[in-house]
Amino acid sequence: FCTEGVQQKSGGLAYDYILKPADSPVRLPSPPKEKSISLTHNEIIEKLQKAEERRQTLEQQKLEFVAKEKQKLQEVVQKTKEEEQKFSREAQAKLRRSMEVSQENREIQIKALQEKLREHLAKVEEVCKSGDNMARDLEDRINKKLSSYEENRNSQLEAMVSRLKDHAKHIEEVCKAGENTNKATEEKIIQKMENALKNREEHLKALQERLREHEKKIEEVRRNKMSLSTCSMERSTGN
């Protein structure tokens, strides 16, 4: 057989084996023909020797055929190994190139990140400076407001103290006026009480006078009744 159609695949090389007849066809010994005449001992030995030679020739041909096929297989295996080594070298070269490219890209990315980090740090520093300035401005404003508030507070306290003094004077004047008013009020109340007592005494006297007059009237009525009763008794006795 022979090899044709070498195909390269991802796992290695593939070969198509096509069987064909041998270049020198081997003739098999035909069975001995029966002869009517019997063979001699020498003829038998000669035929056996020829048969042995043919057998050895066939074995030699088989060994040569096997050796050729083995050599072809070794060549195929060697070629396969060479192809695999070539593919491995190419793959390693590609991997090395890709690693170099990725390393270069990584370095470029690292440089870009470092640049961005420097820019960010610069911005942060600017923000911190502006924040410090704003803090100082705010502190100045607060101090100004506190000082103005302290001044206003002192002026307000002075105004409140003066108001309290004026209020104390006013209270003192009101107290004095109240004392005078209380005295006048007490005198008025005493006068009213005295007048009320006088009016009550007069009312009591009037009531007593009315009571006496009423008693007098009762006494007169009683006397009149007694006189009438005596008159009627005298009349009754005279009859």
Rank of each mutant, 00 (worst) to 15 (best):
K123H: 11
E90W: 02
V127L: 14
E84R: 13
H167D: 03
V77Y: 02
K86I: 11
S36T: 13
K72L: 15
Q109K: 06
E53R: 09
E202P: 00
C2H: 11
I190V: 05
E84H: 09
E234T: 01
D16H: 15
R222K: 13
E139T: 03
E90N: 08
I190D: 05
E201C: 05
E179C: 02
R210S: 12
E209H: 07
I45K: 10
R200S: 10
R97T: 15
K79V: 03
Q74N: 11
K176F: 05
R118S: 12
K9S: 14
S236V: 05
Q103G: 08
I110H: 06
H41N: 12
K165M: 11
D137M: 07
K111G: 01
M99Q: 13
R223A: 07
Q92F: 04
E84S: 12
Q71H: 07
A93S: 10
Q208Y: 04
S236G: 01
Q71K: 14
K94S: 04
N42H: 03
L19D: 07
Q71N: 11
K217S: 10
F65P: 00
F65I: 03
M226Q: 15
A206W: 00
C2M: 07
K188W: 02
Q74L: 15
P21D: 15
N154P: 00
Y15E: 08
E100M: 13
K145C: 04
M233Y: 01
P21C: 12
Q61N: 11
D132G: 00
P29T: 03
I189H: 00
A122L: 14
Q49R: 07
S30T: 06
E59T: 05
V77P: 01
K70L: 14
Q78H: 11
S30F: 01
F87G: 02
E59I: 14
Q49F: 06
Y149C: 08
E126L: 13
R96N: 08
L13T: 14
D16V: 15
D137R: 08
P25I: 08
L138C: 03
V66M: 09
I44T: 02
A122D: 15
E100Y: 06
N195T: 10
I171P: 00
